[in-house]
Design a protein around this nucleic acid. Structure first.
Length: 261
DNA sequence: ATGGTAGGAAGCCTA
């Protein structure tokens, strides 16, 4: 049996990016696509176009900001919308579901800049909630894949200009400490597991010709439970969509989960 | 020290 190819992509508006998303789905053929920054309500999501490509869809949308989705060629079951731990959190940044016994989540972790605003403590509190929830997910001992835009640059080698980003919310020690905490729970970072010593990026700013200069950062990640990590196949960053017309500022990252023995 | 670009909503916020 074929592996399950799971991709994550922050599309920066599903409406503006629809032609890019369609051509990418046709070419990359992921079994599961985790999308972030839809910037639409559930009602306004362009379902038909994507369903016509053979995908089931679960969305957790919001007007103007945020919004996450799970697309899957196989049935989507037991959908949970929103990250547990704060009933007052209005931001649509988390959706989780089961596909073929694999629990998957699409995560849009808060950016946290500027760090002297309320946005930074919101990011850190959100990460604390994610740690709590990941601990619970791990207790089920299932194959679990938490993919998305984590807005965390794990290490200096994941950034084109570590000194320039030192005080940025994506690099701040408080953000990185929580990122490490997630891994200390027993989660495996898929890209680093397969590529222990290369620098590669998943996001390039629209400004200043960052793409042309390869001034990027790696902030889109997969975290895997032990049961998923045991089945991990290839992990790659697909730079092709970032080089197209009217691109997202992020490019897709994908991993393969091999069939259970 | 500032502004550079993109998207959305509506003339400012988020990234």
């Amino acid at each position: 049996m074929a592996p399950m190819k799971i991709a994550t992509w922050n599309v920066n508006s599903i409406k503006a990016r629809l032609p890019r998303v369609v051509e990418w789905l046709e070419q990359a053929q992921p079994d599961v696509a985790l999308l972030q920054e839809l910037k639409v309500t559930d009602e306004a999501f362009p379902r038909e176009v994507i369903e016509d490509l053979g995908y089931n869809i679960a969305t957790h949308g919001q007007k103007t900001y945020n919004g996450v989705a799970i697309l899957s060629k196989r049935p989507i079951e037991d959908v949970q919308r929103g990250l547990p731990g704060d009933d007052g959190d209005e931001q649509a940044r988390y959706i989780e579901a089961t596909i073929d016994t694999v629990r998957v989540a699409s995560i849009y972790l808060p950016n946290g800049n500027p760090t002297d605003s309320e946005k930074f403590p919101y990011k850190l509190a959100w990460m604390d909630r994610l740690i709590d929830h990941a601990r619970e997910l791990l207790s089920y001992e299932d194959a679990t894949v938490l993919g998305g835009d984590y807005n965390v640059i794990p290490e200096d080698r994941d950034c084109y200009d570590p000194a320039g980003f030192a005080t940025d919310a994506l690099c701040r020690p408080e953000s990185r400490a929580r990122w490490r905490q997630l891994q200390f729970l027993g989660l495996t970072e898929a890209f680093r597991a397969r590529h222990p010593d290369i620098s590669a990026y998943s996001y390039w700013d629209y400004q200043g010709g960052a793409w042309q200069k390869d001034h990027g950062v790696r902030i889109d990640h997969f975290l895997l439970s032990p049961q998923a990590a045991d089945r991990l196949g290839k992990v790659e960053i697909d730079r092709t969509p970032r080089g197209k017309e009217r691109p997202s500022d992020h490019t897709p990252v994908w991993c393969e989960i091999e069939p259970a023995l």
